Computed example of a mutant assay.
Amino acid sequence: MRRAFFLVLVFLTACGRSEPVRTDVNASQTRPPQFSDADPVEFGSQSPRNFRVHGVDLSKYQATIDWNAAKRAGVNFAWIKATEGGDLLDVAFAANHDNAARAGVAVGAYHFFYWCRPAAEQARWFIRNVPKRAGDLPPVLDLEWTPFSPTCTRRPPQGEVIREAQIFLDILERHYGQRPLVYATKEIWDDRDLRPLRAEFWLRSTAKPVREVYDRTPWRIWQYSATGRVPGIAGDVDLNAFNGSPADWQSWYGRRAIR
């Protein structure tokens, strides 16, 4: 298998440091998952175990992480929460990003969308806090309803959802040179048809195979558990599978990594 190396220059401007951190991310050196689950689900013949490239997504709530142990256990990629709305920054983002990259994990950032602020404002906030770094995974736009939010429980109509999401995606694509993925839950997917969005989808399905829940919609990443247990990470963590073989991952990463 051809090896593709990416030199990642991580500038820590978000936390006030200017020194670049250099890390080599070898996209071809994937490891099989050695995870467990606090609440396992039997997916039958369409199990996530059929896929060989797995990773995690997480935020400050996972606390301090031993990324080297996580990498050895089969965390090949990680999307880290960076921002929410137009004024919230995950305080663990910079440390998680840099430590994951140092451990050889392919790493990217995601934004949790807030339905009570303009998409353009949220895109500017993300760009302000997430430097453009060669070798990073493409950004992710996390689309969910927020019924328990103390400040915003809006569920905009279909046209507004698509329009605002497209604005966010377009702004980030122009800045980072890669179009973001769109993460979606079953609830928002059923309420608002997200298929018109021009994006690769990352779909959540923790009780049934993703193909059954989303009616065979093409997908790139499947979030199959919220109760995963991974060496190096304390407590529960979201588990994800890449739709393809290790060779497919290498090819996709080579095309979609930020340059």
Rank of each mutant, 00 (worst) to 15 (best):
P231K: 02
V91P: 08
Q166P: 02
R128C: 04
Q223N: 03
P180Y: 03
A70L: 04
A95Y: 11
R211N: 08
K208D: 13
G108H: 07
N129C: 04
R192Y: 13
S245K: 07
R31K: 12
P131E: 08
K60Y: 15
G44Q: 01
R17I: 05
N68C: 05
I171D: 08
F77Q: 06
P131H: 07
K60V: 11
A4M: 13
R204L: 01
A119R: 00
W252E: 09
A14H: 07
I65R: 05
W222S: 02
A241F: 03
A82T: 09
N96I: 03
G235T: 05
P218T: 01
D215P: 00
E164M: 04
F112I: 10
R198D: 14
A82R: 03
T13R: 12
Q178E: 14
R133E: 15
L181P: 08
F35P: 08
G159W: 09
W79G: 03
V56L: 08
V130S: 10
R133V: 12
A69R: 14
E42R: 09
A247Q: 13
F93T: 01
A234F: 09
S245E: 09
R133K: 06
G232V: 00
R256S: 13
S205L: 00
L141C: 04
S149D: 15
R216T: 00
F43K: 00
F6H: 14
R174N: 11
G104V: 02
T153H: 08
S225V: 02
P231E: 07
C15R: 07
W67L: 00
N76S: 05
S18D: 13
Q178G: 02
R229W: 03
F43R: 02
G55D: 06
L239I: 00
H111V: 06
V41T: 15
V21S: 08
V41C: 07
S18M: 13
Y224K: 00
G104P: 10
A199H: 06
S59A: 15
V213Y: 01
R174H: 09
V91D: 14
R211A: 06
L181C: 04
R163I: 02
A95N: 14
D98G: 05
N50T: 01
E121K: 05
R255L: 12
P139G: 06
V210F: 04
N243I: 04
Q46R: 14
T146V: 08
R22Q: 11
L143D: 08
S59G: 09
T13D: 13
R155N: 12
R49P: 00
R259E: 13
R229Y: 03
R52H: 11
E19H: 11
L7G: 11
P156R: 10
E164R: 12
W252I: 08
G104E: 06
V75G: 06
T30H: 04
S18T: 13
S245A: 04
R192H: 15
F77T: 04
A199S: 15
G104T: 03
V41W: 02
L197K: 07
L172C: 06
V161I: 15
P180L: 02
P150C: 00
R133N: 12
V8R: 14
W202L: 04
R229H: 10
R198C: 02
S36L: 08
P118A: 05
V91I: 09
R155Y: 10
N129Y: 07
K60T: 11
R102H: 05
G177T: 01
E84M: 08
